[in-house]
Nucleic acid binder design. Structure first.
Lengths: 220, 220
DNA sequence: TAGATTGTTAATCGATTAACAATC
DNA sequence: TAGATTGTTAATCGATTAACAATC
């Protein structure tokens, strides 16, 4: 029944599904029961066909003229993205950004729970930030192995990034969400997800700029 | 000479160029003068052809067997991405995430300067966070128009997002970097860049998972 | 019934990867 | 000179968009 897990999934789809989920949750809260792909598409300014194909991946069958059952859709999106079983992760580096992520309420909605944080500042060690306990860095291997943690969020300084990544790999981590600008070198069977602030910004600046030249060309 | 600005630029390239820039800056600091696309590719685990094509966009000509002049490459990447003229932006919403971004040192390196922040909390108004002055929300239109601000970073709560976006559009903003999970509705000539934390996380979780099933299939 | 919406197969578009001659 | 690396044209791959019959 859940055969689609074995098929390769496209990255753009993985990015869109959480957006749908957030939107549908809101609709359900307001008492709505059904939604058409057309309406979802319009809300996000996506192509309707794209949305229909995305929703088809979840296996939920829609009814012509009526649309998809929201409740079912939410359940299957969660299943598809693996939010069913809470993903327990750790965070390393409790600076400004790390602290902000510890308090980011979106995560719990998205099947993610930060169960412990690490920092090398003795002042922070033993305290709690947004309800998450902070431990010394040298406890990483012990904690991660014992709790079978697979994913770590990396928010240390750029210069410490590679060293900490090495520790995480050593501790059995399988995926690192890298918020530092440092390119990490890890073994082949470890996944690094680069969260490049500068990259996103570059895209935005470019779009705004081409918007302006566009207006110059199209004169009407 | 700078004819490439009129051509459409691919988004993946825009995301990779800042990564190269960061790496090359480091090399230059260490006294290196030339770099080959092959070495850059190896550092980021990219295909060498991809890097060569990306670098070709800047217009810098490499020398076979030697590579590209780093100094020149940095200059042209900055030119290409529009980092020459500092991009002055504002930030709205000084919660945990907003405050963290106000202190994010990476931005200044990337041609971006947050010149003022806004928040509706009277306690924060008039103070400075990481050296950036915090003003009341109702000053947005005034400040943005006077300083000809084009880009805003949105880090308010999900429920306030659309209202603040309306204010920003009214104030003449052309691009919004949206860190909230709310889908913004704006006029056609306004660009919204969605920073979806949940999306990135979904991608990472999926990769880690397919890694495991892969290992199960390939038995050796 | 009529018409909007679904599900699916085909066509387009764009990015990545491959191939190879040119060059220092 | 020999060989690594560049620059460029062609082939592959995958995602988005288009077309259309099926259906409630």
């Amino acid at each position: 029944m859940n055969e689609q897990n074995s098929k390769k999934v496209s990255i753009p789809v993985l990015r869109r599904l959480p957006l749908y989920h957030y939107f549908l949750t809101d609709l359900l809260k307001n008492g709505q029961e059904y939604i058409s792909a057309t309406v979802v598409a319009h809300h996000f300014n996506f192509d309707p066909i794209t949305v229909r194909k995305d929703l088809a991946l979840t296996g939920v069958v829609g009814r012509p003229k009526i649309g998809f059952e929201i409740k079912l859709l939410l359940k299957e999106i969660e299943e598809y993205l693996g939010w069913g079983k809470l993903n327990e992760v750790v965070l390393v580096g409790c600076g400004d950004l790390g602290s902000a992520l510890l308090g980011y309420e979106g995560f719990s909605k998205y099947g993610l729970e930060i169960i412990v944080a690490f920092d090398n500042d003795p002042v922070k060690q033993g305290t709690q930030i947004h309800g998450v306990k902070v431990l010394p860095i040298d406890k990483i291997a012990d904690v991660c192995r014992r709790m079978r943690i697979e994913i770590a969020i990396l928010t240390v300084t750029a210069s410490a990034a590679q060293d900490v990544a090495d520790l995480l790999v050593e501790a059995g981590i399988k995926g690192i969400w890298n918020f530092t600008p440092t390119a990490l070198h890890v073994p082949e069977n470890i996944v690094v997800q680069q969260q490049s602030m500068a990259g996103s910004l570059a895209v935005l600046i470019n779009k705004v700029r081409s918007l302006k030249t566009e207006n110059k060309t199209v004169t009407e």
